[in-house]
Amino acid sequence: MIRKLTILLGVFTLFYCSPLSAQVDSNLVQFSGMVLDGTTQELMPVPYVNILVQEKGRGTYSDFSGFFSIVVEKGDIIVFSAVGYQTVRYTIPDSLTDNRYSLVQLMTQDAVNLPETVVFPWPSRDHFKLEFLAMDVTPELQERANRNIANETLERMRSEVASDGVENSSYYLRQQSREFYYIGQRPPMNIFSPVAWKQFFDAWKRGDYKRERDDR
């Protein structure tokens, strides 16, 4: 009797729950594509772009070749953001009939406005020296120059001006290569280095450590 009830329950679950599962899965889409730099006609890939599903707290990032792939739902808003680039939003169409969707997303570099620069086109270096020595700097220009080269101003500019996409990816790759360089073995330590031991013995023979103790 228990076996028959188990079989009937399985049949009920198969026929009544399968359409519900299919309905839920039909809303999922495998969203893949490439992120390219559309600032110029070269269309270079943009690596390590943050790809976030808006208001759902999940996402992914593009690899070194600009490729990405993530499972989303129809109607989701996808946010593409990267340092040095303008943020782009794309909405997954609601009318998709397939569970796969591909996209080539172009991103434009975000220009940073720098302070105004005045260029004096002197014909030669000698002319520049003469004009530079004869130049009369007003107190207002001198005060402005002092403010621009102050340590506080330079520190603020270093913290406010963000790195562009090339600088950001280069820094990331350098940090990553430093961590992956010694995969499969221990990183080198000075205690196992013959050169470090030789330097220690030479310093011991010269009496460097004894002099340090005497100075204390």
Rank of each mutant, 00 (worst) to 15 (best):
R3G: 03
R3W: 05
L5I: 03
L8F: 15
L9G: 07
L9F: 15
G10A: 07
V11P: 02
F12D: 08
L14M: 15
F15T: 14
L20H: 10
A22S: 10
A22H: 12
Q23S: 15
Q30W: 12
Q30M: 04
S32H: 12
S32R: 10
G33R: 11
G33N: 09
L36T: 00
G38C: 02
G38H: 02
T39H: 08
T39A: 05
T40P: 03
P47S: 03
V49N: 08
L52Q: 11
K56A: 10
G57Y: 13
T60P: 01
S62F: 08
D63M: 04
F68A: 00
I70F: 08
V71Q: 13
D76K: 00
V83S: 12
V83A: 12
G84V: 00
T87I: 06
R89C: 06
R89N: 12
Y90W: 15
I92Y: 09
D94H: 05
D94Y: 06
S95I: 14
D98E: 13
N99Y: 09
R100S: 14
Q105A: 03
A111K: 02
P115G: 05
P115Y: 08
V118I: 14
V118Y: 08
F120H: 09
P121S: 05
W122S: 11
P123V: 03
S124G: 01
R125W: 13
R125Q: 15
D126W: 08
H127L: 08
L130A: 10
A134G: 14
M135V: 12
D136I: 12
T138S: 09
E140L: 04
E140G: 03
Q142M: 05
E143W: 01
R144Q: 07
R144F: 12
A145V: 00
N146H: 11
R147L: 04
N148Y: 10
N148V: 04
E152C: 09
T153C: 04
E155G: 00
E155H: 07
R158P: 02
R158F: 08
E160L: 02
V161G: 01
S163Q: 06
S163E: 13
V166F: 15
Y171D: 05
Y172G: 09
L173Q: 03
Q175I: 00
Q175L: 04
Q176A: 11
Y181R: 01
Y182M: 13
I183V: 15
P188E: 01
M189T: 07
F192L: 12
S193R: 02
V195S: 08
A196M: 06
W197I: 06
W197F: 11
K198I: 07
F201W: 04
F201Y: 10
A203V: 03
Y209M: 11
Y209Q: 03
R213H: 11
R213L: 13
D214F: 14
D214Y: 14
D215A: 10
